[in-house]
Amino acid sequence: MLIDTTLREGAQTYGVTFDNSACRELIKTLATAGIEEIEAGWAGQKELGELLSWARGLVGNTALSVWARLKAVDIDLAAAAGADRLNIGVPVSDAHLGSRLGTTRDKLLLELRELIPLARNRGFGYVSIGLEDASRADMGFLLQVARRAAELGADRVRIADTVGIMDPSAMMELTTTLRNIFPAHIAVHCHDDFGMATANAVSALRAGADFADVSVLGIGERTGVSRLEEVASFMSLRSADKRYDLSAIRKACRMVEELADIAVPRNKPICGRDIFACESGLHVDGLLKAPALYEPFPPEAVGQTSSARRIEFGTKSGRSAVGAALKQLGRAGNPGNLSALTEAVRDAARDLGRPLTKHEVADALGA
């Protein structure tokens, strides 16, 4: 299951601000996509209560959660905002405890003993404990915090690879270790500093995690976190889990691309504009015979149309592509002139420094 944190983690992206209208549109789209939980913001955020009140009747079974610090004031603010679930951030590395919070392990455990019951008292039926900087924490203390959270009735612990230093094997090992000692839900929050976020999220889910944090286009602090479109598509298309509407997720990608002014690379997995475009001769030959030879999924599977599948003509074009172009132009090529026409197409593209337009292809073929 997925926790979309675009409106919390994603909103922390450098230079990005979502106004109330943008938040509403994203919540509607994410709920339509079938996301199980939306982390809609943080305790004390302006207009958060109004946003949650508006969203409650529109999101169906999607839970609305709020992030909070391990502080009574944040728990009170989150309760006043009317969140369904509370996600409490709990640093577990000595570096964060000492350098950032100026506290100790013992004091942290005491605060947990006080504040988890407080959250229950404030009406939260679901309380999640985020193990911040888990990847750099002392394993013994991390497990001690998880056991304390279990004793106090926490519904979930969330492993946070805060600086993105884990790899899939390490994530699977940590998830399995926690799975063996924590009786309720386990989630992961994977940062992408080494490009491992999506792989780490999928690995954790396969190792027994119940939830993975994601954001649209992976936006978030620094290089961001696991990408919603990648994790959801992998689950849907490779794990036979059909719960997510990939067309709605693609719509969310376009929204965030515009709202956050992020240039999505044309070869970006799932949502790049050119991921179904092909020029090289060997691949074009295969695609013309059977698209599945060189495609892991068809365009329609990820919310695109069949027109996204494009055969372009350039310096790498082969005889199969040129032969297909001749048929479209109503001309029959023969083995003798097909090679010469292929070279003509390549030369024209080389002179222009780019693939040819349809009209330029026709000119090169003498049509």
Rank of each mutant, 00 (worst) to 15 (best):
169 S>H: 06
125 G>H: 11
122 R>F: 08
200 N>Y: 03
134 A>H: 07
195 G>N: 00
340 A>I: 15
260 A>F: 00
94 D>K: 10
261 D>M: 10
99 S>P: 00
148 R>S: 07
335 P>M: 04
38 I>A: 11
330 G>A: 07
126 Y>E: 06
86 L>C: 14
40 A>Y: 08
227 R>S: 11
278 C>D: 10
160 A>K: 07
69 R>S: 11
129 I>F: 04
86 L>H: 04
344 A>K: 07
332 A>K: 11
211 F>C: 00
360 E>R: 14
268 K>W: 13
165 I>S: 04
105 R>K: 15
64 L>T: 09
197 A>L: 05
362 A>H: 06
34 G>W: 11
96 H>V: 02
69 R>C: 09
7 L>F: 12
290 A>E: 10
172 M>Y: 04
295 E>R: 08
113 R>C: 00
232 A>R: 00
46 K>H: 08
202 V>L: 15
207 A>E: 13
48 L>E: 12
150 A>V: 07
182 F>P: 12
225 V>G: 10
149 A>S: 15
337 N>Q: 02
342 T>Q: 08
60 G>N: 05
179 R>A: 13
111 E>H: 12
111 E>C: 14
62 T>F: 06
327 K>I: 08
80 A>I: 06
302 V>E: 09
252 A>K: 01
44 G>I: 08
160 A>T: 13
179 R>M: 02
352 L>T: 01
202 V>G: 01
351 D>A: 14
115 L>S: 06
273 R>A: 11
283 H>E: 07
292 A>I: 01
271 C>T: 09
22 A>D: 03
4 D>F: 05
124 F>C: 12
326 L>Q: 13
269 P>Q: 12
215 S>H: 07
162 T>F: 07
189 H>W: 01
204 A>P: 01
282 L>M: 11
25 E>Q: 13
